[in-house]
Computed example of a mutant assay.
Amino acid sequence: MSDQAEKLRNRIKRQMNGNPSKTIAIISGKGGVGKSNFALNFSISLSKHQKKVLLFDLDIGMGNIDLLLGKSAEKTIANFFTDECSLDEIIQKTDYIDYIAGGFGLNHVIKLSGGRVDNLLLELGHIVYEYDYLIFDIGAGITDELVQLLSSIENIVVVVTPEPTSIMDAYSTMKIISLHVPTVKFFLLGNRMKNEKENKQVMKRLQTVMNSFLNKDSVIIGFLPEDSSISLAVKKQIPFILYKPNSFASKQVQLITSFFLTANTFISIENERNFIEKLKHFLIRK
């Protein structure tokens, strides 16, 4: 009870100070591009700057956050959707971040229906003042319900690898989101790149297509290399930013973290208030 009371006090204090969570979604056009690994290490990097972070694994039934942490969550997002648990009840704690597991090996498929998204947005409205950052790890594939959720998130990081299929799928995903949310901001992150030169070549190509066909600007925020420390960390089920904090990959994540901590042009209190207003909009739209 004392923990719950302290949580409520902190939530009210942040709400009175007008400090809602900043929201960032991590997406990709296809699976297997290292999106969850980046989301986890980015979240931990934010926490090292004294930020309170909740990482939300929305790759339902195929979640990787547990595996990457070497943990097994007692409750997952499946319990929220099927057992009427609150988000507070399914939040898992670590030394660095809190997280909500996506679950894997489920006995049945859980779809994000409109009603379930409404319930999720309502619960998010309850905890939005409790954290500095809400990071959403979004599963591959875009549905109407996911677009609805992404519509309330101001900043979207798109993870892209050099493979042509990854580039085209990323473009297709951004096109669908842009058609529904014209004001969305995209931040491009390369993964498994040989070097900065390759990253620029791939991202410039993607930016050119977006400008030509969508009339949409985007921001390149960096890249992660092909780094043996990443694969070793995955095998050991330790986030690479903790396993090898001085590796090139870890330093790249730190640079990306610094960008989001200082880029007030892209992430502002005004924009994050829009997140809350959009939550209210979806909840009363019917």
Rank of each mutant, 00 (worst) to 15 (best):
D227R: 03
D66M: 12
Y99H: 07
K244H: 09
S258W: 00
I238W: 00
G32Y: 13
I220F: 13
E196R: 09
G102V: 09
T143L: 04
L255V: 02
I97K: 04
S229Q: 06
T257K: 15
F248P: 00
I142M: 09
E196M: 11
V181G: 03
K235G: 11
E163S: 10
N19V: 14
N211Y: 10
P225T: 13
N215A: 14
L206T: 06
D132Y: 07
L106K: 04
I221N: 14
L214S: 08
S36N: 10
N271K: 13
K93H: 12
V147C: 01
N191E: 14
N155S: 09
D98R: 06
S151C: 01
Y243A: 07
L188E: 11
Q237K: 08
N19E: 14
L134T: 08
G222H: 11
K13C: 08
G105E: 06
N191S: 08
N19D: 10
A39W: 01
S178W: 02
I153T: 01
I24F: 10
F266D: 02
K244T: 08
I241Y: 03
N155R: 01
N119T: 07
M174L: 07
S86N: 14
G63C: 09
I220E: 14
L69K: 01
D66S: 08
Q15M: 15
F260K: 03
S72E: 14
I269T: 11
I221L: 12
E272N: 07
N199E: 14
L68G: 03
T262S: 11
L122P: 06
L121S: 09
H49W: 03
R192H: 11
Y99I: 07
S178D: 06
S258A: 12
V202F: 08
N119C: 10
G105H: 13
F186C: 08
L8M: 13
S2A: 11
Q254C: 05
N199K: 01
I138V: 14
A78Y: 07
K52H: 02
F38G: 01
L112Q: 00
I135F: 05
Y131T: 02
T76H: 09
E154M: 02
V147I: 13
N246A: 06
I167H: 06
I269K: 13
T23H: 09
Q15H: 11
T76D: 03
K204D: 12
V160W: 00
I238P: 00
E277W: 00
V159F: 00
E198M: 11
I267N: 02
K216F: 09
G18S: 04
L232D: 06
S166N: 04
K216M: 14
M193P: 04
L124T: 03
A249Q: 07
M62G: 15
V109G: 05
I177M: 01
F186N: 08
K194Q: 12
V160T: 08
I284N: 10
F248T: 15
D118R: 15
S166E: 04
